[in-house]
Design a binder for these strands. Structure first.
Lengths: 354, 354
DNA sequence: TTAAAAAAAGTGTTCGAGCACGCATTTGGA
DNA sequence: TCCAAATGCGTGCTCGAACACTTTTTTTAA
C-alpha cells in the first residue's frame, strides 16, 4: 500500500557500500570498482530508483542564464504572447535558478536582428530560445552557437537542417489542411477560395508556403477540384491604407469569392474590409487571438481563428531548455503544439490558459 | 541583473531577529510580539518574499492520502481517461508524498456507488476527488465528508449547493452553444436539427439539459427560428440493437433532418446509423475522443467532436487538491476546462496531451 | 619488503524551510 | 515576595542529493 521513496542511502545499504559510491555510479564520476558498480546498477534497477528532483535542485543551486532572442512586441502585438509565456516559465523556474535575458530585435530590420544575435554570443548563455524570423541572416549564428556549445530551441518558424535542441510550434501543413476543412464545412455552392498572405515577406516565410500547400492539398484530396477554385495572393499595403484596393480587384476578377484564409495574424485587416462592404457571406478564417482579431470574431465576421498558441510557444520553449539543462530529460526534436480551433463561444478559455 | 532569492534568513537579518521568529509569523503560529510581527510583515512585503517550494516540500515529507471515487473504466471506456489523468498527476506529485487510492464503482449501479462512498469515509483520506454521477445518492455523503473535514473536488458533473473545494469540468451551457455554432456554420438551407440524448438517464444528468439549453438559445439568439427547427429526443436502446429504429422514426417525421447533436460520448452510435444508410449530408457533432468516435471522425461521418478533456479533469482534480493541501494555494470554486473543437486534422494533438 | 602512488570507498557539509525544543524574560496570583 | 505559568524567541536538527575532502585499500615500482 505504501509507496516507499527509494533514496540513495537505501541503495547504499542494500549494496553494502556508502552513498558517496552510489552517487559516483549515478553520475559516472568514475573511481568505482567494476563489481561494485554492477551491483549498484542492478539494485538501482531493482528498486526502481528515481532521483528526488526536489532535493537535487535544492542542492545544486546553480544559476542558469537563458537568453531569448525575439522580436519587439511594441512593433507587432503578436509577440506580446511569447513574452508573457516565457515570463510565466521564468517565474515557475526561478526556484531552480533560471534567469532569462531578453534580446529584443526589430522584426522589420535584419540588421537589428544581427546586432542582437551577436550580443547573445557575447553573453555566453546556458541556453537560447529564438524566433528565427530572419532565415538567411540567422544561419551563420546557428553554427556559432553550436560551436560554443549553447543549446538553442527554435519556435514560431521551423527551419530545416540547423539541428536545434527542439522546435516548438505548429505543423504548418496540417494547419493549412485544418483551415481548409473548416472553410469547406461552411461552403456549399461552387465558389472561389482565397489564400491571402497579408503584409508578409513571403521569401523569408517558408511556413506560410507550407500552410498553403496543406490548404490546397485538402481541397485536392477531397476531389472537389471542380466545385472549388483555390487562388492565392500576396496582399501588401501600407498600414494606413488597408487592403481595400487589392481585395476590390480580386472580387472583380472572382465574383464568386466565397471564403478567405489569411495565413498569418492579419485576418482583422480582411475582416475590416468585409464589414465595410457588408460581405456577410464570405467566410473568413485566420490565425491568433490578438485584440483586433478577437473583436471581429465576436462580431461574427471572422468565423474561426486557429490559435498558434504563441504564449505556449514561449512557455514550452523555456521549459524544454530547463528540461534539458536542469532535469536532464530527453528532448524531442519537434514539439508540435495543438491546432486549437477558436470561435466566439470558446474564446475565453484560450485567452489566459491555465 | 542577478535575481536574488529571498530566504527566511534574509528577512530575519533585516528584521534583526531569528529565522524561527520569521517562521512563526509566516505560519501564524503566534508567540511573536506585535511590534516584531509588524516589522517582519513589512520586510516580507518589501523584499517580496516567496517561499521556496523546493525546500519546503523536501522538509515536510508527510504523506497525503487522496481518494478518488470514480466509475469503472471497464464498463464505460469514457472513464479510462480520468484514470490516466489522475495517474499522471500522482506520478508528478509522488515526490510531494501524494498517494491516491481509487474507489471504483459501477456506473450503472447506485448501490455500488453507495458502498464505495461509505468505504471512502472509513479510510479518512486527506482529500477526495469524485465524479458524482449519482446525484441524489451522493448528497448525504457530501455532508458527511464536510463534517469529517475532508475537502472534495467534483469533476465531470456539476452539482449545485454542495460546496466542494472546486468543480472541474466544462461550462455545459457554452458547450451546447458551441455545438450549435459549429452545426449552424455547416448548415445552409432550412433544416431540422436534432438534439439527441443517447442512452442516458436524463433525470440524473442535469448537465445534459444545460447543454440543450445552450444549444437552443444559440439558434434563438441568431434569429434563425424560421429557418431551423430544433427538436430533442431521448434515444434509449439495448447495446446490441443500436438506435436504428428510433432514428428511422425521427427521419420519417422530419424528412429535412440536417444535423444531429449528441450530448454525450455516444455519437458513434448515430454515426454507425448514418454510415449504414449513406446519409452523408447529415452533419454530426458529439463529445469525447473515445475509440469509436475517433474512427467515425476519421471517416468524416462525425464532423466535429468537442473534447471534454476527461484526462485533464482527473489530472487537474488531483492537482487542485494538492494545491490546496500541500501548497496552500487559493483554489477557485470552478475551474472550467477549455471547449476544444476536434476534427480529423487536429485530433492527434489532443490524444495524449503534453 | 616496503614506500609511494593510485584507486576506491567513506564522511561530512551544504542548500532553505519546518518545527521541536528549550532558554530567558515577563506576568500573575497568593 | 516568590514561584509557576505564559510568553517571546533563538538553536539546532531534519529532509535527499551533490560534492569536496578524508580515509582506507589496492596496486605498482624500487
Amino acid at each position: 500500500m505504501k509507496k516507499k521513496i527509494v533514496r540513495i542511502k537505501d541503495i547504499a545499504e542494500k549494496a553494502q557500500t556508502s552513498k558517496g559510491t552510489v552517487d559516483r555510479v549515478l553520475h559516472n564520476r568514475g573511481r568505482v570498482a567494476d563489481d561494485v558498480r554492477e551491483r549498484i546498477l542492478a539494485i538501482i534497477k531493482e528498486l526502481n530508483y528515481e532521483p528526488n528532483l526536489i532535493a537535487q535542485s535544492l542542492k545544486s543551486q546553480r544559476a542558469f542564464n537563458l537568453a531569448a532572442l525575439i522580436p519587439d512586441p511594441n512593433l507587432d502585438s503578436y509577440w506580446e504572447a511569447p513574452h508573457n509565456g516565457l515570463e510565466k516559465a521564468e517565474k515557475e523556474l526561478r526556484q531552480y535558478g533560471v534567469h532569462i535575458t531578453k534580446f529584443i530585435f526589430n522584426s522589420h530590420s535584419d540588421t537589428s536582428f544581427i546586432a542582437k544575435a551577436k550580443e547573445v554570443g557575447r553573453e555566453h548563455p546556458d541556453g537560447l530560445l529564438i524566433a528565427p524570423i530572419f532565415y538567411k541572416e540567422a544561419l551563420p549564428f546557428f553554427k556559432e552557437w553550436a560551436d560554443m556549445g549553447i543549446p538553442y530551441v527554435l519556435f514560431n518558424t521551423q527551419i530545416e537542417h540547423v539541428h536545434p535542441l527542439c522546435y516548438i510550434g505548429q505543423d504548418s501543413y496540417r494547419s493549412g489542411s485544418l483551415a481548409a476543412k473548416i472553410l469547406r464545412f461552411g461552403l456549399h455552392s461552387p465558389a472561389t477560395v482565397l489564400v491571402a498572405h497579408v503584409n508578409e515577406d513571403i521569401s523569408n516565410s517558408a511556413h506560410l508556403i507550407t500552410k498553403e500547400e496543406g490548404f490546397r492539398d485538402y481541397f485536392k484530396g477531397e476531389k472537389l477540384d471542380g466545385t472549388f477554385k483555390v487562388i492565392s495572393k500576396e496582399i501588401n499595403f501600407p498600414e494606413e491604407e488597408g487592403p481595400d484596393k487589392q481585395l476590390d480587384e480580386i472580387r472583380k476578377q472572382y465574383p464568386d469569392l466565397g471564403a478567405v484564409y489569411v495565413t498569418n495574424s492579419k485576418a482583422f485587416e480582411v475582416a475590416a474590409y468585409l464589414e465595410k462592404n457588408a460581405l456577410n457571406d464570405i467566410k473568413l478564417v485566420g490565425y491568433d487571438l490578438i485584440g483586433p482579431n478577437q473583436q471581429y470574431l465576436n462580431k461574427g465576421i471572422i468565423d474561426f481563428l486557429i490559435n498558434q498558441n504563441p504564449l505556449g510557444q514561449g512557455y514550452w520553449g523555456i521549459h524544454q531548455l530547463a528540461n534539458y539543462l536542469i532535469f536532464k530529460k530527453e528532448i524531442p526534436a519537434i514539439k508540435f503544439l495543438p491546432l486549437d480551433i477558436i470561435t466566439r463561444e470558446n474564446l475565453d478559455y484560450y485567452l489566459d490558459p491555465q
